[in-house]
Design a protein around this nucleic acid. Structure first.
Lengths: 124, 124
DNA sequence: CTTGACCTTCACATGGGTGTGATAGTCAGA
DNA sequence: TCTGACTATCACACCCATGTGAAGGTCAAG
């Protein structure tokens, strides 16, 4: 598919898709036109990129961990790079931290909203 | 405490503490000097701000939800503002999304790291 | 009284993600 | 063949969180 369709499917503007390419996160083929041609599996990839970006993770890190986030992980394991491993472990630990942090916030918001609702029900 | 001590305790540079104040996220008292004087409870608050900021949440949103993240939530419920409620629900839902997303990534990283380790153990 | 560690404000810079507009090529359909 | 909806590249500009440095005030300790 071309850039417009991918943009629609992922809700990521073409401008950003080109930017991700510039950052090495996606590498679409080119048609004879020069038009970018995206494979279907990139839809998922772009969504993943957006999620990570929204979470404040910079493209540099995203580029490093993205190949490791596929469900078919068995494929890509062939270089026992200890540096890569360290970085993955680091990001893994950060994920755990983030989860704990968000769970707290989720619960706190939950409580607060409930309290609001109860106050509204009572106060009426 | 003064800004330097708070900076040490929270690992947030003074520059940023002043910035948070400018954004209305913390409002320290002032000594006769003009020096900022922070209450102890702000340590926690600043840590929370950092967490949210690291998670890619802009100061505008943080300012809105911060008062609702305290453990003593019962105190602050007195204005049944439907707009505020909507925003809180929205942020609450986003927290849930984020958690799910991070859990996926955590698991994927976990799997990948395990695979690396197994490959290394076998390949040796 | 001076030094040094703190604090103040102000201002300018930077980096990353994003918006926007200019200019131009491609191509399907009326 | 021309129009309109795509696409391309390039460039400038923005927002926001941060860094950094200048110029100066406060205050405790030597």
């Amino acid at each position: 598919m071309r850039i417009g369709e991918l943009a629609r499917k992922t809700d990521v503007p073409p401008r950003m898709l080109r930017y991700y390419e510039e950052q090495g996160l996606v590498t679409p083929r080119r048609l004879d036109n020069g038009y970018r041609e995206y494979d279907e599996y990139l839809v998922d990839r772009v969504r993943k990129i957006r999620g990570l970006l929204d979470a404040g993770i910079p493209t540099r890190i995203i580029g490093a961990i993205l190949p490791c986030l596929g469900q078919t992980s068995a494929i890509v394991v062939d270089d026992p790079d200890p540096e890569l491993r360290a970085m993955l472990v680091e990001q893994h630990d950060k994920m755990i931290e983030r989860i704990a942090f968000f769970e707290q916030n989720r619960d706190a918001l939950s409580r607060y909203i409930d309290a609001m609702d109860r106050a509204a029900a009572t106060g009426d």
